[in-house]
Write a protein that binds this DNA or RNA. Structure first.
Lengths: 117, 117
DNA sequence: CCAACAGGTGACTATCGGGTCACATGAACA
DNA sequence: TGTTCATGTGACCCGATAGTCACCTGTTGG
């Protein structure tokens, strides 16, 4: 029901097996069978993961005879970095300071609470 | 089972409601009740989402009297960008070229297949 | 004190997601 | 041609997760 294309990418990245698949495909394209050998789970499970990755646009498929070559498409990862993750970069720069302020505020209010009690 | 701290972050980001919470907290800290008002779902659902975000280290909590102030911690997002997502930046730079090569290869092999059949 | 208020917990339900298997499809090659 | 091989599909199981609700805890402030 969520038609946001970024949502499919985030959900695809949520699984560690799928992230490992992307890491493997980063080196070079691989067939479905070749990928399956790298995992403890069954070939069918890996195929389902590939379906999720294809639906998110993270993997492109080329069929060659009876083989299926899976190729990485890094564009969606770039997209979510541009459209969403980078928003937090500026905040991170001052995070240490913010956190320090926060702890001091917390300690001060805790002291106030103790005093009144 | 999966003790990778990055995994908790990726799973936390997989839900669009949680991403909206982070967007709201990016502006300023907010109480649980204030956050709940922004969503169609119940206060309890939002609280569960906050628990997930806290477990992933994305949200820090400060209690003030009967209020709970939720504050964004951008560090985990920075971490997954550094440790994982940036690996794909270099590939993305040449993605257009790769895709072009791929399509040509595909067309050529399709032609070969047609000829042999 | 005590009533209104903000927040939190535990149990429960429904749905989703990951995993498996039996079986189907379609290409390669002797 | 027919057997072997790589891949794909559908149904099914089960644990995880999002959601709700009844009820509890602790705080505020008259």
């Amino acid at each position: 029901m969520n038609s946001d294309p970024d949502d499919a990418v985030f959900r695809a990245l949520a699984d560690s097996t799928r992230r490992r698949v992307l890491d493997l495909l980063r080196e070079r394209p691989r067939t479905t069978g070749e990928l399956s050998e790298q995992f403890a789970t069954s070939r069918f499970a890996v195929m389902k993961h590939l379906q999720v990755l294809v639906a998110a646009g993270l993997v492109l498929v080329e069929r060659r005879g009876r083989e299926r070559w899976n190729r990485l498409n890094p564009a969606p990862i770039q997209r979510i970095q541009r459209r969403w993750l980078r928003r937090f970069d500026a905040l991170a720069a001052s995070a240490q300071l913010d956190l320090k302020d926060e702890i001091e505020t917390q300690a001060a209010s805790a002291k106030r609470r103790r005093t009144r009690a």
